[in-house]
Amino acid sequence: MIEMPMGPITDEVLVAYLDQTLSAAETVAIEKALGENSTLAARLERLRFDEGALRDAFSGFAAAAPADTIEKALRVIEEARTDTGEKRPVPPSRRMVAASLLGLLATGSLAYLWGRDSRPDMTNWREAVAQYHSLYSERTLAGIADGDPDVPRDLVRVGHDLGLEIRTEWLNLPDLSPRRVQALRFHGVPVAQIAFSSTKGPPVAFCIRPIDAPTSPLRSETRAELAIAHWVRDGFAFMIIGGNDQEFVMRRSQMIIDRMAS
């Protein structure tokens, strides 16, 4: 065991060094020892892994926590609030929890309690698309006329990039008018984006990318506060994104799925 001013350099000390929890003096001492002792340096490497990748891997668990659980939990809170929060004086020591738990319900701060991780997971293509689409406003497509002749031509071009024929009849969707087709890339993978103006308000986009994943059914989710419907079929991932009406994007996604199957 190598001795340091603060004691032997155990694996626990090396972990504390990797986790940057040592004092400045201890860190300097460790780094000096690492520079002088290859065995110690090798021990350090045997403890090193990518904590960021670990956090990213588990980010989906919190994001996927079931809504029915929160509803039941909030019901418990509401019952407690009804029972104790408003009729009886609350000792000061209770007020912190009351403010933090019960108050969240009373002030409607559900998003604060239940909000998704604020850090975008940019290794997920739908998150990347959502962050991009969040920049769209109703004015984004205002300068492009309905029936733009570039759209059919660009569909062929981006379809060629994807290896998929994107048929114009897929895009004949109620309340939506295709205005622009873009060839995007996500970590080197081609992504087609067909942007629609919507009679219902915010623009909507239909996006496609090739993917090495099994077929999965139509699902809904919310990213960047935008409604998303997504599915995987025959080696391609599809999504419709825009606005906050899940039913709107789900219905139009189902129309595309039906047309693809016909």
Binding site: F58, A62, A65, L113, W114, G115
Partner: peptide, 20 residues
Amino acid sequence: MPRLLPRLWRLAIVLSGRRD
């Protein structure tokens, strides 16, 4: 206390391995 309940649920599922 941002994202408290989702984080608690994540801890719960990592401990138990079962959604229910």
